[in-house]
Design a protein around this nucleic acid. Structure first.
Length: 849
RNA sequence: GCCGGAGUGGCGAAAUUGGUAUACGCACCAGACUCAAAAUCUGGCGAGGUCAAACUCAUGUCGGUUCGAGUCCGACCUCCGGCACCA
């Protein structure tokens, strides 16, 4: 043992010890209750950043806590190692993506070990290795078998900078999620996963996880799935037998429909206009809107005007029998609902704006329910209505000018009118979803190849299971042209048809890397399985994940895909539950000041405000870096980097360490049990603080309030320092109080600064390390009780004095004591005491006037 | 525009869910040690007021409920995030 605290020496020593003793390897046959603690697996960019450090420090604190409590903890790590940066490195610098990736993994693994994160390295996985992506392909084929993977030509999101397709989730807001380039639309033949088949479950099952997931993530998922209840309604054309189907959530407003508006991409436009003199004009308009949308990746921007054109065709409102014009406009989405809407200017902002521009009639059919007004609103002449309206009235209300339906409440009319439409065979109640199928084809080299072969005779043929994996070739030309680099590798492309043996070609696209990360944490349960993605008994034993920790940037990508994937695996009988993750923590960003400015932004190379974890470890030690990161802010808050703060963490560790040094000889031989000596008042106070601290920290761990745990550890340490400073006779009872406090402190410090905790634990006379000999301390409620209370006394709600009382003091005694208090008497003199409020154990408030 | 979340010392933040506001740390100030500095240790640290107290004010703003409000209710302001013509 050294008198001084040398973090580097201690950290090397214990990292080696943990590795040699396989301290963190989880056993599948451990009878103790399991706890699966998971952090989002990193992309191997080459370097850990402080965001990773924060993520893993949080996870490790929880993993240590659960281990010390006696759980069988699974705490694995792996690499999300397919993807864009490796390919960019190949294009720019001519390196081999595989070598580049493997080198990065090696370096980052070293960094994680230097941080001393307690991972079970025996379960490490990497997505780019054939033994892993084989199972991506296996899952693809299972989806294909069940019709959940399908290929179609469709407009897809195209990132022009990266020359590849993006999923809807990855092009949210019309920009590429990775590079920020404006996304274009392209018509391409693409693979999709039918996530829409699970749309209802993705919404409904939220109730299974809502207690454990942050509300903001659930909200985003609900919005993303976009469930909405409404009705389909068919508007027949005035002439001919065509019908236009619209979707509406406000069938109660249908008497106010003054037009039908089609998306420019609506497939019916062509037929509607067959004999129309306006055909050329309308078609030209539709083409222009389409090309504008393709350039922009979405329909009109908010600043831009809605534009439309009247087709001259009339449609009949099936409720009112009225004929209304059919328009084509740029603001109707083809992707949602039916690509056609009924335009109700009086009750929809967008339709109102459109109607203003083109002078379409505004017909009010819903009135506000007024509380002052007893009578039901009456139908009024249509002239009166349009004058009055400045904005659309979008609330629910009471129907007017709606034939037989007038006088009904919106909520009732919505149900009854849909039923009527269904009975009359021109519509039905329906639920639509905003979410669309997950496009997974990528024109990339560095991903899992789609296991499909194209044969002239047999068509599209799945690769048989026994031929998996379809291996990536060792090299390819990276032209950046937009076509998959695999298309240029003849050895890869040319194959034989698995069915007829004739020459055939492979699919040359690879899968979205979010496929890899949708199921990786199941693989940790059985990482070397060669015949299945994982053994389902092992998966059932370890999963669902008890606590998942990561950034909230994946709220609608990874976290929705993995929920979908789990439901699919459930349908394959691989798992027996609906939801993969019980509790989710979304940690805040680590930010740093951008040099020369007042702005705090996420650390990044390009901004030059990054902090290198290795430098922090070298300067302060991993224990101090981790302690600081967890102490500086609540885990879900932004964390602003402050080097002075980490120095404070070192100071604290050093002080604890030297205190252990001062006591270790006296403590390492003897006093292992509370002695029968009468402890001094100071010793009783120390024990009280110890047990209060244990109770507080244990409860704070359940809510992951890690910052207040560190504060509580510091308070306990301060109490120990104060005890040391007192001139106390070192009776065995007093020494025991110190032992109890110090040992508790050291054990509870382990989740934050495990190396230092191990070292100190050893100095305190324990062999074999914390995991073998240390147990999370138990709070004794009796010892934690105060033996004297200081009760604040208020007069009219203002603090005026304090009285001392025994814990078992009665309300009446407190009342008397408060009124007898000298200061209080001065305040009530000359006033009349109206009443005295006594909160047992807490406070007295004297009300006077 | 719509939907969330948040506003507490110079700073990061606490506050057992309506009961002593500012725990813990950082920074700062003073003292001890030192020839000196650093490190370390001790003390101080919301604002006003005072030799010191007493006392007054203070949790974004304004109102309300209550014996009592950082916490509950209403209106507003500011900041941060998400979504953005989803019918």
């Amino acid at each position: 043992m050294d008198e001084k605290y040398f973090p580097e020496k201690i950290e090397n020593k214990w990292q080696q010890h943990w590795s040699e003793t396989k301290a963190f390897e989880a056993s599948d046959d451990d009878p103790r209750p399991k706890f699966y603690c998971l952090e989002m697996l990193p992309y191997p960019s080459g370097f850990l950043h402080m965001g990773h450090v924060r993520n893993y420090s949080i996870g490790d604190a929880l993993a240590w806590y659960k281990r010390l409590q006696g759980f069988n903890v699974l705490h694995p790590i792996g690499w999300d190692s397919f993807g864009q940066p490796a390919e960019q490195a190949a294009i720019k610098r001519g390196v081999n993506p595989r070598d580049w990736t493997e080198e990065n993994i090696q370096h980052m693994r070293g960094q994680m070990k230097r941080l001393g994160i307690s991972y079970d390295w025996s379960r490490e996985i990497a997505a780019h290795r054939p033994e892993y992506y084989k199972w991506d392909q296996w899952f693809f084929l299972k989806m294909f078998e069940r019709g959940l993977a399908y290929k179609k030509k469709s407009p897809v999101n195209w990132c022009p900078r990266e020359s590849t397709v993006l999923s809807n989730e990855q092009s949210s807001g019309g920009v590429c999620w990775r590079c920020g380039a404006a996304v274009e639309k392209r018509e391409l033949e693409q693979w999709f996963f039918r996530i829409t088949d699970y749309a209802e479950q993705l919404v409904a099952d939220i109730k299974q996880i809502e207690s454990g997931w942050p509300e903001k993530v659930l909200k985003r998922q609900r919005d993303w799935v976009g469930r909405s209840e409404g009705a389909f309604i068919d508007f027949a054309l005035k002439s001919g037998d065509q019908k236009i189907r619209v979707f509406t959530t406000r069938i109660d407003t249908i008497f106010g429909a003054t037009a039908i508006v089609l998306s420019a991409e609506h497939p019916l436009i062509d037929q509607l206009l067959e004999d129309s003199p306006l055909k050329l004009q309308v078609m030209a308009f539709a083409e222009r809107v389409k090309s504008e949308k393709a350039a922009r990746g979405r329909v009109v921007n908010e600043e831009e005007q809605k534009e439309g054109i009247n087709t001259g065709v009339l449609a009949v409102n099936p409720f009112s029998g009225e004929s209304i014009p059919v328009w084509v406009a740029n603001y109707v989405l083809i992707e949602y609902g039916t690509g056609a809407v009924m335009s109700v200017p009086a009750h929809d902002e967008r339709d109102f704006e459109f109607a203003q521009k083109y002078s379409l009639p505004v017909r009010r059919v819903i009135e506000r329910i007024s509380h002052e007004q007893e009578s039901i609103p009456h139908d009024v002449s249509s002239e009166d209505q349009s004058i009055a309206m400045q904005h659309a009235f979008t609330d629910y209300g009471i129907l007017v000018n709606s034939g037989n339906w007038s006088g009904k409440l919106s909520a009732d009319a919505i149900v009854e009118m849909a039923a009527y439409a269904e009975a009359s065979d021109f519509g039905k109640a329906a639920v639509t979803y905003r979410i669309r199928d997950w496009g997974i084809s990528r024109q990339r080299f560095w991903g899992a190849p789609v296991p499909i072969v194209y044969c002239e005779k047999c068509g599209m043929v799945p690769v048989p299971d026994q031929d998996l994996p379809v291996r990536l070739p060792d090299r390819a030309e990276f032209s950046g042209s937009g076509e998959s680099p695999l298309a240029g590798v003849a050895d890869f492309v040319n194959t034989v048809c698995p069915e007829c043996g004739a020459p055939a070609r492979r699919d040359t696209d690879t899968m979205d890397t979010f496929v890899d990360s949708s199921w990786y944490f199941f693989r940790y349960c059985d990482p070397r399985n060669e015949s299945m993605p994982f053994n389902s008994d092992l998966a059932k034993a370890w999963t669902p994940v008890d606590q998942y920790i990561g950034g909230d940037s994946h709220a609608v990508m990874h976290l929705i895909y993995t929920r979908f994937w789990t439901k699919f695996m459930r349908d394959l009988n691989l798992v027996n539950f609906d939801e993969p993750v019980k509790k989710l923590l979304t940690q805040g960003m680590v930010t740093n000041r951008v040099q020369g400015t007042d702005e705090w932004k996420a650390m990044s190379k390009s901004l030059g405000n990054g902090v290198d974890p290795d430098e922090m470890i070298a300067a302060f030690g991993a224990d101090a870096a981790r302690l600081f990161v967890l102490f500086a802010a609540p885990v879900e808050n932004e964390l602003r980097w402050a080097e002075a703060g980490i120095e404070g963490a070192v100071r604290f560790l050093r002080r604890v360490y030297t205190m252990v040094w001062r006591w270790h000889e006296r403590l390492s031989n003897g006093t292992t049990e509370a002695s029968s000596d009468e402890p001094s008042a100071a010793a009783r106070a120390l024990r009280r603080k110890t047990h209060q601290t244990i109770a507080k920290i244990t409860s704070d761990f359940e809510g992951l309030h890690l910052n207040t745990i560190v504060a509580a550890l510091m308070e306990l340490f301060n109490e120990l320092s104060a005890f040391e400073a007192e001139p106390v006779a070192a009776s065995t009872a007093d020494v025991f109080a110190v032992r109890e406090a110090l040992e508790s402190l050291v054990i509870m410090l382990a989740p934050f600064s495990p190396h230092a905790a191990e070292e100190m634990w050893q100095y305190l006379g324990h062999e074999g390390g914390l995991l073998n000999s240390g147990r999370w301390p138990q709070a004794d409620a009796e010892l934690a009780k105060r033996d004297e209370l200081e009760i604040p006394v208020q007069v009219n709600g203002k603090l005026r004095s304090r009285v001392l009382a025994m814990p078992d003091v009665t309300e009446e005694q407190l009342r008397i004591a408060a009124l007898a208090d000298e200061k209080i008497r001065a305040f009530i003199e000359g006033h009349q005491v109206v009443k005295v409020i006594v909160v047992p154990q807490r406070l007295v408030n004297v009300v006077v006037k």
